[in-house]
Design a protein around this nucleic acid. Structure first.
Lengths: 204, 204
DNA sequence: ACGGCGTTGCACAGTAGTGTGCAACTCGGG
DNA sequence: CCCGAGTTGCACACTACTGTGCAACGCCGT
């Protein structure tokens, strides 16, 4: 058979995984990376990639599915049972931080001309829950901003990317980046800097 | 002559201007927009665009030059003679806001695989002056953030984009967006929300 | 109404990417 | 050892884009 649709060998599996890993990195660097670039970066020939994924779309789609799942998981797990809005945001950001690169991929692709139909839709639940959390915080007076909750959600999103870029450029140490980003996000939501720092220090 | 290198007619000039305007919008929507897309959007045939600009690169380069100039102008004009860091940031953001879409284009292109060599370099002076302003504010205690000044500059940048996206999506009214964005940026720099609001209200 | 600039439409060559078919190779497990 | 899944290399057709040449056309001022 030309393609190994039911492939299950050890190296086939390893290759598939490696292709996905490399594709994430490569597409992060350049959302228009070609199949050839990805293949070479994975130490494999283009034809082999088509053995694992029928098309570029399919490859990206697999990546998107994994990213959405990982993010939704991390977020819901982190916020489970937490009622205080500020603490919920803190926990959410801290939990999302380690998987933020995947988030970044999603946004980079979604901003682009409909690479994969419906990234935004698949991401909507996560966004919505964040918006309602922010709204609640604004209503309760825990947060304060001239921006409405949905816009504040955009701002938080972009702030994470900014800090990630700063880490990439060596402006912020990777170990403290998550905490710093969290404090920054809380501060932007109107939480006093002192309270934000304190809050982040309390979270394990 | 095939091309009108010295073209000076009224409609030729008008076309050139319109092509540039439309190209800005089109490239903002999709940094990979083809010459055909741009031409059609400008109500012109592809061949005509090549009459005004010898290549895609040249067209984009013209756009970049205009953007950098407009931004540097607005920023230096707004901050001229202002010593208080918070007020300087407020004036800067308010002045940059109306031309922020051009800024956005620059970043979108610069993030991409070297579309135009040296966008970052041409943008560096503007960034540097912003960084030193933030640094001064942090030193004087006007600002407060766990992030170093350069990272904070990234954050401010991205926050502007976030608010712009919010405006695009109808989440924030265009008239108040500039003021809201300014308050948000100041807040993120650790300026208390009340002081930030007050400050923005004072600026004409 | 005429000349010329700007524009159009079309054709062309060159480049780069996608997805597929096929034969030959390699490597590991039974 | 040898069978087969997985891989490679090459060839191919197709699509989309760039940049150029050229002839024809339209429009404006003089």
């Amino acid at each position: 058979m030309t393609a190994m649709t039911t492939g299950n060998t050890s190296r086939a599996d390893a290759n598939r995984r490696r292709i996905l890993d490399v594709a994430l990195a490569e597409l992060l660097r350049d959302p228009d990376a070609s199949m050839d670039q990805i293949a070479r970066a994975a130490g494999v020939v283009r034809r082999t990639v088509y053995g694992h994924f029928p098309s570029r779309e399919a490859l990206i789609s697999t990546l998107v599915d994994g990213a959405v799942e990982a993010l939704a998981d991390a977020d819901s797990r982190a916020r489970h049972g937490v009622t205080d809005p500020a603490e919920a945001v803190a926990r959410s950001v801290l939990a999302l931080w380690p998987v933020a690169d995947r988030y970044r991929l999603l946004i980079a692709l979604a901003q682009r001309t409909v690479t994969v139909q419906g990234i935004r839709e698949r991401l909507a639940p996560l966004r919505d829950s964040k918006v309602s959390l922010l709204q609640r915080g604004l209503d309760e007076g825990a947060f304060s901003s001239p921006l409405p909750a949905p816009a504040l959600a955009y701002v938080h999103e972009q702030m994470l990317f900014a800090v990630m870029e700063a880490v990439n450029d060596g402006l912020v140490a990777a170990e403290e980046a998550g905490r710093s980003a969290t404090v920054a996000v809380l501060t932007a939501a109107g939480v006093p800097a002192s309270r934000a720092t304190e809050l982040v220090a309390e979270v394990p």
